[in-house]
Design a protein around this nucleic acid. Sequence first.
DNA 1: TATTGTTATACTCTATAACTATA
DNA 2: TATAGTTATAGAGTATAACAATA
Lengths: 157, 157
Amino acid sequence: MSQSPCLNAPMSDKPASSSPQPGNRLEGFLGYQIRRASAAILADLAQSLQGLDLKITEASILMLIGERPDITQSELGRLLGIKRANMAPLTAGLTEAGLIERIAADGRSQGLRLSEAGHAVAIDVEARIIDHETRVLPWLSDDERRALIATMMRVWR
Amino acid sequence: MSQSPCLNAPMSDKPASSSPQPGNRLEGFLGYQIRRASAAILADLAQSLQGLDLKITEASILMLIGERPDITQSELGRLLGIKRANMAPLTAGLTEAGLIERIAADGRSQGLRLSEAGHAVAIDVEARIIDHETRVLPWLSDDERRALIATMMRVWR
DNA sequence: TATTGTTATACTCTATAACTATA
DNA sequence: TATAGTTATAGAGTATAACAATA
């Protein structure tokens, strides 16, 4: 299932020269590096999901619903950092695609579940993401990976 | 110059409950963590630049021009991962704001330099970014910071 | 009163395409 | 032919405001 062996940063017309490059002061900032790494990883992940007709966010939503059946879209938004107003078209699209179903919880909220088709797609999604993960930073040991995850989580949570 | 002691993730209507939270499978992926960290850092940096009337990208451009006078905007785009077409309004805005000047290099390209005002702003920008950096991951040692920078750079470059 | 879901809407960022002028 | 700069434009992603229905 692997594809390209390395990442491409997105944007820019041409790759910046691949020679050692003096490097600039910006590249000494961790915030800048994390931003560039994030963009490159997102681009690679989008590639990994090709053919599924799912945006990265939609794929993430499927995984979360698979893990927590009957979650509401408001709660999904809270977990993913997406506003209610922006969740509406996302869940509407997944419902229309037949990947999720809405079950009335109380009068105002609906629990979300994967359909049969959605379950199959979610499994495919997870396999692709796992493959993507190991491809993106292949040189990391499991310990290093765990430590990096903990560090990143500490930044935003 | 320090402000908020910790970061806020952007988006979402309400903060996800701050209790330990079981955590979900997505949070075990490094790509996801880097994305969330990047968003949080960007949000904090935008706060740090408040009052300067500069977007993060514009601030980065000022720093780079300060470091490499007479750089062209095409080269800037290459370094920052921004397309030529999207550089045009950025440099036009900075020129109009009186922060940079364009000096014809040859008939088709222009070297960019900081104006007197631009130089002062660039110094302010750099000070704010340095402050931001040390505020965002204050628990990192210099060695850890360097290692993290190298890891992130390896992802995208 | 607070929350859920929804719609409308605006702004930013990025992408493509096409054009002119120059090397 | 390739590059520099520009313009126009389309698509994401995210922001706010407002509303109805329900808790």
